[in-house]
Design a protein around this nucleic acid. Sequence first.
DNA 1: AGCACGCCGACT
DNA 2: GTCGGCGTGCTC
Length: 662
Amino acid sequence: MGAPSGAPVLVARVLVDSPLPQLDQLFDYRVPPALVAEVIAGMRVRVPLRSGGRIATGWIVELADTSEFAGRLSDLEGIVSSAPLLAPDVWLLARKLADRAAGNASDILRVAIPSRYVRVEKAWLEARQAGGGAASDASSVDEIAEPIVPAAGSFAESVEPGRRLALTPRPRLVELASGTWVGGWAVDLAEAAAATLATGRTSLLCVPDYRDQEQLEAALAEAVPAGAIARLDARQPGGRRFADFLRCLDGEPLVVIGNRSVLYAPAERLGLIAVWDDGDALLAEPHAPGVHARDVALVRQEQSGAALVFAAHSPSVEVERLVRVGWLDVVALQRTERPRIVVTAGQPGDVSHARIPSSTWTDAREALAHGPVLIQVAHPGFAPLLACATCGENARCTRCAGPLGLGSRGGVPRCRLCGALAADWSCGECHGTAIRPASVGAGRTAEDLGRAFPGTRVIISDGERPVLRVGPEPALVVATRGAEPIAEGGYRAVLLLDGERMLLRESLRVAEDCLRWWSNAATLAAPGAPVHLVGVSGRIATALATWRQAEWARDELDARRALRFPPAVRIATIRGRRTSLLEALEAVAELGDGVDALGPVPEDDGIERAIVRFDYARGAEVATTLRAAMIRVATRRRRPVAGQPPRPAPTLRVRFDDQEIL
DNA sequence: AGCACGCCGACT
DNA sequence: GTCGGCGTGCTC
């Protein structure tokens, strides 16, 4: 029934934009005669939802001439965008990822499809209508002067459709023909993308931040024609980004680079999906349902049959697990060169330079005669932590009790949480008013070193004021971890100063993160230049010194397996009111072996939290079960308490594979 | 989330 | 008899 028999009917199957789990399904609408000639799958449309005239937006996922729906179909209300922004492959990807994370496909699509620029879209639609081909006639693959064949023994040779690789790239800087210095990894990935382009296929290259992207772009500039590169990073002006997004729909092979959203690029005929440094926290998606770029890459590879590459100097424990289960093959590059690591476990050394042992000091002095020296520190600012000079308690913000820090010498202490200035501070414990530094930040280190090496230029680079590149002349470059500039020709020495303190942070992943930060900084050294790891010893120091990060990750994986911690198992975090939470946990408990729960524990405001742990093989069942519980809770009768205003929605919030929670 | 439908208490 | 309260259920 539904459609009146006789008249030909076009049915649009639409995914409605809604965070409600019970609406995460396709709804059928009749395409009114006036729109029949215009609609195509992938368009953004407006549809009535609930006959009361409410209009929602959504995506046409497919068109059909019959509907399974037993009721009467409503008419499509109108077209928002005539461009088919939702590609069929991306729909399948979003559906699979949402199901895997017990989330809504529309939430995935919000992350996957950038916001529209009507002008840009109009131009693209006109160009498509006119030429039938690419909107950009600036270039095509044919412009590549000579076909790119991967050099014998190069990594690019290993890249072929269907292969899944874990790559440890060359751990040093490379000078491009243009004179720009970039990490060797960027050249490796650029060559692989060039070889893929030469076979007429598209590459998706995903990097954590713009600093990595800048290196990769420089390497790509010498490997592929400029017209074949599309950029989907967040730093691009929105219009440009949207234009490059649309170019992916043209069907020409491209090299698409960008942050984690690049893995959703609507390109067809994928030949390569590569993720650089997948342990970087920026590759975790903050928006619900929070699917990590690593997982997006894994699922997209499976669906597209492209080659898959995870490249990192220090592989994540997750990638090591994939190697262990045989999902990824390891590509080992020749170990002819690796950074020269010197482990100087904390002798106090010269008292006036307490943070720097004397042997390290000597090396730094020697290196400074020839070029720049990198000093990696944990914290930005001058004194990131302050204490009461009288009683020694940490100085806290009088407004929010957050920790106070000092941005520069002689500055006013400021709360690191709420940003409030603490001009007339007094101690909450003893009411003293004198304040003293309790830790050393980049600014203080720079000042101390500057005094020790008078006349030497001191450069500070941190997250707020990053310096991308420095020259080959002598300078002390003090940088917070992750914000190290690239030095032309490499640093003459690298000092990893705050290792001990970095390791103190309380998180399951600290050690892994530290090894990654140290490794990445070490690759910035010139060949043969010493890299001093100060104040850290033990297995992790050995792993860095022998450049065997993968072995360390393997041991770490074993340790987590013993504890039943991720990534040895998967986890799902559930938050909600106690009764709803217990109901969900009960349903999950019935799944039996390989699934267990931690909690619930109270969080705030009547909300409690539990963590479900489960083996990878049980993931689909856990997701289905939790999804069902979410829908049950969301559609259950809401019992308003007499006299009270409507209470907050009794929703159950579920997040899979949260990196931060343990 | 909204919004309509429906089955019980006070009303002209 | 019937108006309208809000609990219940659905959204093509």
